[in-house]
Design a protein around this nucleic acid. Sequence first.
DNA 1: ATGAAAGCGCTAACAA
DNA 2: TTGTTAGCGCTTTCAT
Lengths: 341, 341
Amino acid sequence: MTLKRVAEIAGVSIATASRVLAGKGGAHRISEATVAAVTQAAEKSGFRHSHLARSLKSGQSALIGVVVPDVSNPFFAAIAREITLAAEAKGYSVLLADSREDDASERRLVGQLRDRRIEGLVVCPAGLKQDHFTAAQDAGLPLVVVDRGFADGDLLTVTSDHAQGARALAQVLLKAGHRHIGVLQGRPGTLANDERLAAFKATLADAGVRLPATHIVGDAFSETSGRTAAAALLRERPAITALFALSNQIALGALRAAAELGRVVPRDLSLATFDDLPHAEFLNPPLTTACQDVPALGRRAAELLLARIAGEAKPRTRLQRIPVTVIERASVAPPSHKGKQ
Amino acid sequence: MTLKRVAEIAGVSIATASRVLAGKGGAHRISEATVAAVTQAAEKSGFRHSHLARSLKSGQSALIGVVVPDVSNPFFAAIAREITLAAEAKGYSVLLADSREDDASERRLVGQLRDRRIEGLVVCPAGLKQDHFTAAQDAGLPLVVVDRGFADGDLLTVTSDHAQGARALAQVLLKAGHRHIGVLQGRPGTLANDERLAAFKATLADAGVRLPATHIVGDAFSETSGRTAAAALLRERPAITALFALSNQIALGALRAAAELGRVVPRDLSLATFDDLPHAEFLNPPLTTACQDVPALGRRAAELLLARIAGEAKPRTRLQRIPVTVIERASVAPPSHKGKQ
DNA sequence: ATGAAAGCGCTAACAA
DNA sequence: TTGTTAGCGCTTTCAT
């Protein structure tokens, strides 16, 4: 059902029908009879505006793209939700894409979204390259990177204060008396990984505790990586009394590895981690964690993107930091602590 | 940058440019020189097809709508992901909408998606009314309902085998020796709630165990409802030795309520629940649950939708069931069981 | 092997 | 108060 058809039914011109259905009846002093006729014709025929045609004409798609590495990951899902809600509130719709942690897919998806004439893009990069983002931005597309940023370049990025969280967790482990600590890292080269690692290492160093390169293992922010890396590390360096996992997935992998090796957390091994789990308080053991404010990440990203779409200039600070909250729970205890849970 | 502009740069007609960029150079025997000229012009100018224009012309938006009550809920996120991946594999993009469990918002969003000329819609309804879905379907929109279905009507629905799961959980509780059981229900009137409740009740009845109406409390699939309902029920009916929570959120609420009342699960209270939690094995206590195959729900929904879009007829069985798996963990123990964990 | 032109559904400038 | 028309960017039929 098209506007043309509605106009025919109502016996008016297509322009008049358009005006009425755009609610501009008043502004154009269209007679009540005409308004009624058009409205009725539209209702009876189940007419719906074609946003496609409207977009083509107006040059505004009212579409925002969101690209994340895994929609089903509650972390990204929470970010996607905040963006969706903020977008909907401003009349935008959200095109969601899942890059499956794959650089090539991500490029393809960004291309498709650009073809769809999205007016803005929020992305959590899957890879270490940013040229496809830069190209899009240079072509005039408002863009905000969230969570995983790039150390260089000029892409506006919303991310947690990784250094703050890592420092705080290091202090928790030091305070408990740990001196032999292992790190289960995520993907080296990523901002989150490197910032967390550097701050953690620096804090240990300040306290006179060494963190040899052999104690830093793992290569991805995944449960698998955490499990494998933790298992190998604990076998090779039995003196280690505490682990710092750089993500919740890694921490769960570490829990499994510890269970397999018969090491009870926190009695035989302490564990501190980044990222809260949905219900960490009910976990066994409850995890000490640097909890990111995920909804805030999403909200800030949405806010910045919508502002840029509205024509505001990019803020001067490229890296927008969201504070993290360290929550001390039972997974950290003094080394070699025995007995009572 | 438009096709027209590219054509100008390449010194050819807009039709030729279109053909070349559509990869139809061969079919139209376009000279290599022309192909090269157009390709270069397009590349240099960073030309991108306007999918909007293409859609308008072709009448195919290649868009699929997904409406869920809460994108950040891992359950819906997992479903959304499967649909997204399946859609992307077939060249469709996904418009994601979050109804915030609100009927009115849902209606509005469905309308917007229809305006965008989506070719199909997967929806997890927020409310109990289905007229807006029926209307869309009657207007020719392929539609699949997922998870929360309607008892009547003819909307194709993919949902878990709720009765199977509820029966199995009832048997687990009975086997453990429970005779005074409370049910923390979700939203009455929803298919999932009513099917789970009916099957649970019937299984108890078959075993000669009564489930009085006073023992069925709660009004939403939320942690808050679970907590409030559990607290009230346990206070009023201290004889109850086991609870059946109709969702994971409700179960978490129940855990909190139990903790507040000083009842230790499973020593003083057993708990069985529907829906697995992401890492239920590490929960304290690990929950006995009827685990839904969430990705399968999403995949089946996507599959059915894409088939309908491709013109296939609706399958004869309106309610497509995905089996659930009951996992027995430590949260269920014999009543009044004391001591060892 | 290439071009001209119609038309997808809509809006808005200009006319009347 | 209403209508006519151009045009958004593209594909495709029909010519040449």
